[in-house]
Structures are given as structure tokens and as C-alpha cells.
Design a protein around this nucleic acid. Structure first.
Lengths: 187, 187
DNA sequence: CGCGTTTTTAAACATTTGTTTAAAAAGAGT
DNA sequence: ACTCTTTTTAAACAAATGTTTAAAAACGCG
């Protein structure tokens, strides 16, 4: 997860789990196939909490707040996920094989329609879905991707950084909701 | 820059530039040393525009606006830089060798003191320097790191995405300045 | 137990890796 | 043109890579 595909040898992986190279190939057929499984597992975990929030029966404002809350909590427990996934997608040449397979469940929650509706009735600021997505992901994913950079730059220990991230969650929540949603909109 | 250290072989690099392996080692001594040079060059470019803005004679609000403006323009031309640098720092075991060498010039601009002062006199919201840094970097770096993800997810072409990013620059500017700076502060 | 299947192991395989060697080519100065 | 230095090349090196082989061990079940 941290060293990436090219950075990890099957022997390193085998030693790490107390196994050997032949056994890995016996069960996973190839290094590439093993990686695929890991990536798909990561992606599934990654999208899990999103889908739960999107499917809930709430206003968009409430969903946004809850999404940020849950994503932060999730990444506190799995801080290596955002970097792993973005890196994997970034380095993949051509198209990602099963991308639609991952993204369709999101569309099926009807979240996009809810956003469109909220923008029409003036509840939500009228910026494109893509920009909303980037805004959210930037503020939710990047803080965990930059943990090491932050530690080096500011010279703080792990625990201090975790407390920063807890505070950051609240900042992001307030900032994004203030920005994305109009204060007193005409219902 | 895109494949990373482990993902690129010296032979691939040699072919790419129309050279050969021996010549690369003749000039750069080792693959690791070559990478170090590339990384330092990237880091220098990376910090360049930051330092210019920080050293300017402006209010913090103006500097923030200008920083976002210049960073976005810079990354429009070098979109692979944020991912490369963050990935390099992320994968490095232990400490980054020359980290202080890169970060000291920032401190020397006096930007940290200006922030502290602005927070005391009420111009700027009172959140820690680390959180301010993360907020800024999140919104300025991540949009470029997630280009491929965004293209896959939303199924848009390169050009559409570039226009999105131009619009995103304005959104980020407005959002961050609204959030970080108090509207009518007591001067 | 005995036998067929599954799981585990050590060894070997062909490639690819980063690096070095030694000879050839090109350049610079007189 | 000659000589010394610098640059370029092809070949070789040992080590590491992903994968396969074949035999051993463990297991399941009559």
C-alpha cells in the first residue's frame, strides 16, 4: 500500500506475511493479479462510506456535513488509502479497466440529481458537479496524503498531527458548507 | 516524473533521451543520484512562486489571493509536479535528507510572523499555521493530482478539465479568502 | 490406515535490474 | 599530425525480479 506496485517485490511481500514466492503465485496467479485484488478491495472500502451517506434520506447540506465527518473518521483509520488509490490511478497507462464498475453505484444513489435540484432551487451554489467533487476530495483526501510532508515541514510528531486532523475536519466542514450552500435560500 | 523512481529503469530513461545506460552513469554516477537531482529541481521550481509571493509587500489577504492565482497558473503548466513531489516524500523511508534546506527559505520571508500578526489583530481566522498550510495545499495541489481520476470519473477530455481548473482557481480563491479572513476586522 | 487431492516448499528458470569495464570515438591544444 | 583528455559505446557483471517446476508435506475421507 505504501511502496506501490513497482516498489514492492513478491519476495518482500512473501516475507512480510511469512510465506514464500511460490505460494503467492499459487493463490494469486501473478503479482499483477494480486495488485488488482488489493486495489479493488481498497476501492471498495474507499467508496463504502460515500455510498452510505449518499443513499441516506437527508438534505444535501446534511449529507455534505455527514460525508466529511465520516470520510475523515475513515481516513484516520486508513490514512494510506487516498495516496494508494490516487497513485494507482495516476500511474496506470490508458484507461482504468473497471472504472465504471466503481463509479456507477454512486450515480445510482441519485446524489447527482439531488445536487442538480438543490442548485436549481437555490439551496446550493451553482458550480459544476466536477468542481464540487474536486473541492470535496481536495479537502478530505489531501490532508491524509500529505501527512509525511506536514510532519517534515512543521516538525511535529504523529500524535500532534492527528489532533490537527481532528480540528481540520471541523474547519473543512464549516468552510465547505459555508461556501457551497446559500445561507437563507428560498425553499 | 510520472512513473516514479522504482517505475522507471535507467534503460528506459536512456532510450527516452536517445542515450545509453553507461552514459547516464558516467554523468550522474547512479540512478539514485539522478533522481535526487530531479527531485531537487522539482522542489526548487515548486517553491519558487511561493517565495516570490511571500516576499512581496502586501497584506496577507492579498498574498493569499496572489498565491492561489500563481500556484494554479504554475501547475497548469506543470501538472505532474504535485504528485511527483508528494509521492517522493511519501515513499521515502525515514527522514527526507535535505528537508530543512527547502523549508528554511520560506520561514525567512517572514510569512509566519505576518500570519501570527494578522491573527492577533483579528484580520485572519485563528487557526494553526499547520491547518492553514493544509487548507491551502489541499485546494491548490490536489486538483492537479486528481486529473486522471477526474477524467475517468466524469468522462471528460483534457480540454474540458483545463477549463474546469481555471474556474476552480476562482472558486478556491473566493472560498479560502472568505473562510480565512474576517470580513470587517478591527484594524 | 490408504489414497487422492490440496497445500506448501525449495530450487531453478529466463528476464530485467543497476552498475562497471574496457575499448572506441571525438575533442582540445600545441 | 600528434598526444592527452573527455565523451560515447557495446559488452559484461552480479544481483534481483516475476514465474514455473517438481517434489514434499498436509489434509480429507472412505
Amino acid at each position: 500500500m505504501t511502496k506501490g506496485f513497482e516498489g514492492s517485490s513478491v519476495r518482500d511481500i512473501a516475507n512480510e506475511v511469512g510465506s514464500n514466492v511460490a505460494l503467492l503465485n499459487y493463490y494469486f496467479r501473478s503479482k499483477e493479479n494480486l495488485f488488482e485484488l488489493i486495489f479493488q478491495g481498497a476501492m471498495t472500502d474507499f467508496l463504502q462510506s460515500m455510498l452510505e451517506v449518499f443513499s441516506a434520506d437527508m438534505s444535501l447540506k446534511e449529507k455534505t456535513s455527514l460525508l466529511i465527518e465520516k470520510e475523515f473518521d475513515f481516513f484516520m483509520a486508513h490514512p494510506e488509502l487516498p495516496m494508494f488509490i490516487l497513485q494507482a490511478i495516476h500511474q496506470t497507462k490508458g484507461e482504468i479497466p473497471i472504472s465504471s464498475h466503481f463509479f456507477e453505484p454512486i450515480a445510482e444513489t441519485g446524489i447527482f440529481e439531488q445536487i442538480a435540484a438543490a442548485q436549481i432551487n437555490g439551496e446550493m451554489r451553482n458550480i459544476s458537479l466536477r468542481n464540487v467533487t474536486i473541492l470535496l476530495m481536495s479537502n478530505v483526501h489531501y490532508p491524509f496524503m500529505s501527512k509525511k510532508l506536514t510532519q517534515e515541514f512543521h516538525g511535529v510528531d504523529q500524535e500532534t498531527l492527528e489532533q490537527d486532523l481532528l480540528r481540520h475536519k471541523e474547519y473543512v466542514k464549516e468552510m465547505l458548507i459555508d461556501y457551497l450552500f446559500v445561507e437563507n435560500h428560498k425553499i
